[in-house]
Design a protein around this nucleic acid. Structure first.
Length: 511
RNA sequence: GGUCGGGUGGCCGAGCGGCUAGGCAGAGCUCUGCAAAAGCUCCUACAGCGGUUCAAAUCCGCUCCCGACCUCCA
């Protein structure tokens, strides 16, 4: 396998660049993972699906990827402004009388289950912030030694204005620091910080704050951005290839990550910054603060999570009633397909209509994948399979353009169906390539998988269906169509659909 | 208010100077006892107004709408 030449859109330069890893064929990729103070919503899932696509393609393209995706579990401040000094995880722990780590464990379990259901591959390393407190303290110390941070009553703040005198603080967001400082918006509780853009590296814990660790500056907990800098550096080095996350992280989280790393080590931490766009609902970003989020389990079932459900983990959630947003349940692979039909840098608006279109499209694609296995080769080909194969790579090489890839695969679907219908032919060699193309791209790269219950593994069902279909075919051959239609209608009521073809009758269970 | 990104056919979504994706829906035809599936054909759009160019959905300017970020958020 030759390594593909990939172009990646780099937020740093605002254009597509040739992807050249620091130490080929090795690639270091860090993606900001979930903050486990609540359940992941489907908007979060979009980001993880996008990076799963990128990870899968890099691996498929021949790279040896170390993919690090963190879990933030130290409890970021919920309401520093009002002086509450209580983190979200700690707050829930008190209210529900649970240990903080008990809550983390539950959300982590649910998160991993949802990832698995969506066929998102686990990263190479999934480090937790709470497991890397010493690294974060050490990094904070280094930043202080370099003079880019100051202490104030047990809190350590990063000095953005000082940093910006020798560095371009807004290099990622494209904002200049004067504009940001001039921002008329006023925030309360800023008196501790020297500058309004300064951010905490370490926070002193109030007595009621449950998640706490010892540090050179007293009992406290790490700031909101330091864990990603510390953990990426630990596992990928001071400078690594790709750093990703949702684009809402650009102006603050990632901007501060760069400042921390540069402030600590004097080198830029990341070569390619990759950002995914948001999932919207009626044109509005799905977010917790807007309250327009829905959960994967609700989408997969079309049901509403019960108010007293102890968890939103799909396998354990308690559901009640139809979800007002969904006309029906949408399967995980339908959702994945829906997301992959849009480029990762575009916003994607959720709607029943769009989801149902994806459902049909996904089914058509998977039917063709199955048909492909039954095709017989001919002497030569009437379609250009090599070109199709090349176009699939070209699409992915162009900034992981999955919608274009799918468009090409659907061209392939037409070819497959035409061959099956006898209006096109393929050579043996081309058929092998066509099969490889579909297997590689549909399963390995796009990460789609068959969801239909393959009836073959249920001997009882198979035997029964064979008998029923045999009776129906006998009736048909006697032109006893009322009997044959009665069988078909009866099966349809039992959610079993059948299709007559030249090779015989096939059946499947509708989802 | 500042910064950034958008407005594409009935819907979803690519493209980002010439070759006018793809999916879904709709119409007709073929196949079929009828369905379903599949094949063929049709429906040909780029917010508005100017400009640059032999050529613009694609570049430039203005206008109108929408969104994101500036405060935790994928």
């Amino acid at each position: 396998m030759t390594i593909q030449q990939i172009e990646i859109y780099n937020t740093l330069t605002r254009k597509k660049e040739k992807f050249v890893p620091i130490n080929p064929p090795f690639v270091g990729m860090y993606v900001c993972g979930p903050t486990l103070y609540s359940d992941v919503h489907i908007g979060n899932c979009r980001t993880f699906i996008s990076f799963d696509l990128i990870y899968r393609y890099l691996v498929h393209a021949g790279y040896k990827v170390r993919y690090v995706r963190n879990i933030t579990d130290v409890g970021h401040l919920e309401d520093e402004v009002a002086g509450a000094g209580e983190d979200r995880i700690g707050k829930q722990a008190r209210l529900k009388k649970l240990e903080p780590m008990e809550i983390i464990q539950r959300y982590a379990f649910g998160f991993r289950e949802v990832m698995s259901i969506l066929n998102i591959l686990p990263p190479s390393i999934e480090p937790t912030a709470s497991g890397h407190i010493p690294e974060q303290i050490e990094m904070t110390q280094k930043i202080m030694e370099k003079g880019f941070a100051y202490e104030k009553d047990g809190n350590i703040y990063f000095d953005v204005e000082k940093f910006s005198k020798t560095n371009n603080y807004g290099i990622l967001s494209g904002r200049n620091i004067e504009d940001q400082l001039d921002n008329t918006r006023t925030l309360d509780g800023q008196e501790e910080k020297k500058g309004r853009l300064d951010f905490a590296l370490w926070k002193k814990a109030k007595p009621e704050h449950i998640m706490r660790w010892n540090s050179p500056w007293g009992i406290g907990f790490p700031g909101w951005h330091i864990e990603c800098s510390a953990m990426s550096q630990k596992y990928l080095g001071e400078t690594f290839d790709i750093h990703g996350g949702g684009m809402d992280l650009i102006p603050t989280h990632h901007t501060n990550e760069i400042a921390q790393s540069v402030g600590c080590c004097g080198v830029v931490p990341v070569r390619y910054w990759v950002h995914t766009n948001m999932l919207t609902l009626n044109g509005q970003k799905m977010s917790r603060s807007l309250g327009n989020v829905f959960l994967p389990v609700e989408l997969f079932t079309g049901m509403k999570l019960a108010a007293d459900s102890p968890t939103a983990t799909p396998s354990q959630a308690k559901l009640e009633g139809k979800h007002p947003l969904f006309e029906k349940a949408y399967s995980p692979m339908c959702v994945r397909f829906f997301i992959l039909q849009t480029h990762y840098r575009s916003t994607l608006d959720f709607s029943n209509e769009a989801l149902q279109a994806s459902e049909k499209g996904f089914e058509r694609l998977m039917n063709a994948v199955n048909t492909l296995e039954k095709l017989k080769p001919s002497e030569k080909s009437s379609a250009d399979i090599k070109s199709l194969h090349a176009k699939c790579y070209a699409a992915m090489n162009d900034d992981f353009n999955s919608p274009i890839l799918l468009a090409h695969l659907f061209d392939g679907v037409k070819i497959i169906n035409s061959i099956h219908a006898g209006t096109a032919i393929v050579s043996k060699e081309d058929l092998t390539l066509l099969k490889k193309t579909f297997r590689d791209f549909v399963f390995d790269v796009l990460g789609l998988k068959e969801e239909k219950e393959t009836s073959n593994n249920d001997e009882l069902a198979n035997n029964l269906m064979n008998l029923v279909l045999e009776i129906r075919n006998e009736a048909k051959s006697k032109k006893d169509f009322s009997t044959s239609d009665k069988i078909r209608d009866g099966l349809a009521k039992a959610k079993i659909s059948i299709k007559d073809s030249k090779e015989g009758t096939t059946w499947e269970i509708e989802n």
